[in-house]
């Protein structure tokens, strides 16, 4: 893959970067105008409160952190496979004594609840448009309704069958017409590929019902700290997977992959934000690395639009640009894969 375009962009920013480096060389904490804030700006409706709860618990936590040294984190490590992907049941059952970690878990529970209620509200707009047979309104509501889902995808992994019901692709079935193919992408197919919503109504009803199941189940979920660390990484792995957003496989009829992409990044960022106070204690260098990778990635995504202004069709993202995104995602994923161990989790 060629990276010529990327080179030029990087080159143009070199001067700025050098200046930033100079600053950071003396104070590595200085860079933390991290972009969870800009996420809020561009998406006032849904993610703002989640991020706030993150920083709120963060500042309380700072105080608590003083007398709570790193010793906690070392103690309770047992031999485990260390598999970084896939949230296992042991991880769900995990508990921790570190109050900062507990704060993060509590904060995430709030975040998840907020995302789920946004998801239900935005999906109602979407489903109503489908039932009205209003193609244009459906097109507008589709990527919006998916954002909360994409932000909390790690949670979906904890609820049986939900992913297959609401987010499967036609590849898992006998083609798009297979009646067992349900969820967002089924309606996406009716909307963009068929241009006809006459038969889509029942799938909109079904989607809403499935999301209600998600909402009900999520309330009872036992969230272990590993869900947070591994979740932050998985959201990024998800983007880069060969059948993920980077390849444009996800929203193949609509080309709205960048909405999902951005939402995955936001979901991961929100997790890191919640874990920031404890990570600040355990491995501040890693925190800086992760946060600046997010900055870089968000800078790259900005070129393609925003939730408010809309994102370009994924076809418009060139091979070179995908290569640049892949490289940033790769670096970020390597860093995120260290979160779990850095926090002393199993």
């Amino acid at each position: 893959m060629g990276t010529k375009g990327g080179r030029r962009r990087l080159g143009a920013r070199a001067a700025v970067v050098v200046a930033v480096l100079a600053l950071l060389a003396t104070a590595c904490g200085g860079d933390d105008g991290v972009d969870v804030n800009s996420v809020e700006e561009s998406d006032a409706s849904s993610s703002a409160s989640g991020s706030e709860s993150g920083s709120a618990s963060g500042s309380e936590a700072d105080a608590a952190a003083e007398d709570d040294t790193a010793t906690d984190e070392e103690g309770d490590v047992e031999e485990e496979s260390g598999s970084a992907s896939g949230i296992s049941e042991e991880e769900v059952a995990q508990t921790t004594e570190n109050p900062l970690i507990q704060d993060a878990v509590d904060g995430y529970r709030v975040y998840v609840q907020e995302q789920i209620s946004d998801m239900q509200a935005e999906t109602k707009v979407f489903a109503d448009a489908v039932r009205d047979g209003d193609i244009e309104a459906t097109k507008a509501a589709y990527p919006v309704s998916r954002r909360p889902w994409e932000r909390i995808e790690p949670i979906a992994g904890l609820i049986e069958d939900i992913d297959g019901a609401v987010d499967a692709r036609e590849d898992d079935f006998d083609g798009p017409e297979d009646p067992n193919f349900t969820g967002w992408h089924k309606i996406e197919w009716y909307t963009w590929d068929q241009g006809d919503l006459t038969e889509a109504g029942p799938f909109a009803d079904q989607l809403e019902a499935d999301l209600q199941t998600l909402a009900d189940t999520a309330e009872t979920l036992d969230l272990a700290p590993g869900v947070l660390t591994v979740g932050a990484q998985e959201l990024i792995e998800e983007v880069a997977a060969p059948d993920g957003k980077l390849s444009g496989e996800e929203d193949r009829y609509s080309g709205t992959d960048l909405y999902d992409f951005k939402a995955n990044v936001e979901g991961s960022e929100a997790l890191v934000d919640l874990l920031a106070p404890v990570l600040e204690e355990a491995d501040p260098e890693l925190l800086t690395a992760v946060e600046s990778s997010f900055d870089e990635l968000n800078g790259q995504l900005e070129v393609f639009g925003s939730f408010e202004a809309g994102y370009v069709h994924y076809d418009e993202v060139t091979e070179d640009q995908r290569g640049e995104l892949a490289a940033t995602l790769g670096g970020l994923a390597e860093s995120l894969s260290l979160l779990n161990g850095a926090l002393g989790l199993e």
Partner: peptide
Amino acid sequence: MISESRRR
């Protein structure tokens, strides 16, 4: 910014 993360 870009580079800092990578550098780190």
